[in-house]
Design a binder for these strands. Structure first.
Lengths: 230, 230
DNA sequence: TCAAAAGTGTTGACGGTACACCCATGT
DNA sequence: ACATGGGTGTACCGTCAACACTTTTGA
């Protein structure tokens, strides 16, 4: 007969803050409209209950897939929220994650998905269910902090990108303008960009060169104690 | 009649990695010997089940108090560990915390406490129960990282300390020697040290001046966007 | 030919690092 | 008087920030 620990258990959920960057360089978050109480019809972070036979990471990926169609993205644990009254009905502890996606690939999916999902600029958010606003703010702080010392910004861009796209990404997330020449110098010095033999197409001005993030090299350098910093 | 979410629930615990620094400048962790299965008689992190009517932070503080007598210390959430098989009996998700204490105040308590608690140097650890070794390693990485850009090191020292103590603390945590003059210059420049009109006593050489951490000023500067870095 | 963004170097200021000796105190 | 750690300043070097013009392309 299987042993059972004799303690009452809180409910356990995961919630995901999914960030995307649109063509106008606006940082957006994916929200879904709840169709069940509590907070029915309100916007909330995608998420749901953790199953007893799946890890937390697996639960976060599953919920993301089920509710938004998003798959195979950068996903990292953010923080665990456990205030007693964060759910009006019952005790629910939630392990929050944040994800970074390339919005151009997912914009269509989200719109055509059966469930009611939409991207909101982080500066114009609707009222959110539960303590999801607090979770979201925590995620924004983390993203701003982490982007400076880990090369995670690439996760928000297409695989091939221009240096201007990369710079605008940093300007958006950090909320400050950056000097073009210094930005390029800094990034070239990290040696993490693969220069491609391709350029932008379809722009009404000189076409910019395309680059790729060299993840292999990053992992190598990281092991050797190299520190990314921008 | 109260609503109940219709989902099975994993067990939920908190575990605490308590760091202390002894007089020989060794970084130590407090462990307790388990007197219940599973892993009976093995060393483990202090921790236990989260009650349905207490927050996660409160649970961590309560367990710390109950199992080690430690109270009112720096305590911060570390990470939530949720692998399916991390407990051999049942599904248990654990929210890990780490704490920093001034060991000279707690060395006695721990020794005289009824429960079997002891300090271990992090370089000489016994085999640990569950995945506690992994939790501990995660805590060490976090401590090493955080000590550089947040003034949390003071939590490991007595309220009044010498600059040499502070320097050795950093050398211990970071695992590298630091230049004495540069270290002092850097720290004075942060303006976070209150110079006291007191000196060390009972040493067989010139007595060092004592300092205190100026937490008030730190909070002020932090609000203004100041960044601590050592 | 015009508009719009791509691409490119130099200089000065500042901060970080390396480094060695005298001082105060207790035994 | 000696052993032990406390306390102090400078010079060099590398890094970062500021800054403006030419190039390419499509419309």
């Amino acid at each position: 007969m299987p042993y059972t620990y004799p303690y009452p258990r809180p409910n356990l959920t995961v919630d995901c803050v999914v960030f995307g960057l649109d063509e106008q360089h606006t940082l957006k978050v994916m929200l879904i409209r709840r169709n069940l109480p509590p907070f029915q019809e309100q916007w909330a972070l995608p998420g749901g209950f953790v199953r007893v036979d799946e890890s937390l990471d697996a639960a976060a990926r599953r919920e993301l897939q089920e509710e938004t169609g998003i798959q195979e993205v950068f996903l990292e644990q953010l923080y665990t929220f456990g205030a007693v009254d964060r759910d009006p009905r019952e005790r629910v502890v939630s392990v929050a994650y944040y994800a970074l996606v390339n919005l151009s690939e997912y914009a269509i999916q989200a719109a055509t998905d059966a469930s009611d999902a939409a991207w909101f600029p982080i500066t114009r958010l609707p009222p959110l269910a539960f303590d999801h606003d607090r979770i979201l703010q925590t995620a924004i702080v983390r993203l701003k902090g982490k982007v400076r010392y880990e090369p995670i910004g690439f996760e928000l861009l297409p695989q091939k990108f221009t240096l201007s796209q990369l710079q605008k990404l940093y300007e958006t997330i950090l909320g400050q303008p950056l000097d073009k020449r210094n930005f390029r110098k800094k990034f070239f010095k990290t040696d993490l960009l693969i220069e491609l033999d391709e350029t932008q197409t379809g722009v009404a001005h000189r076409a910019a060169r395309l680059y790729q993030f060299d993840e292999q090299k990053y992992l190598q350098l990281k092991q050797k104690g190299f520190n990314f910093e921008i």
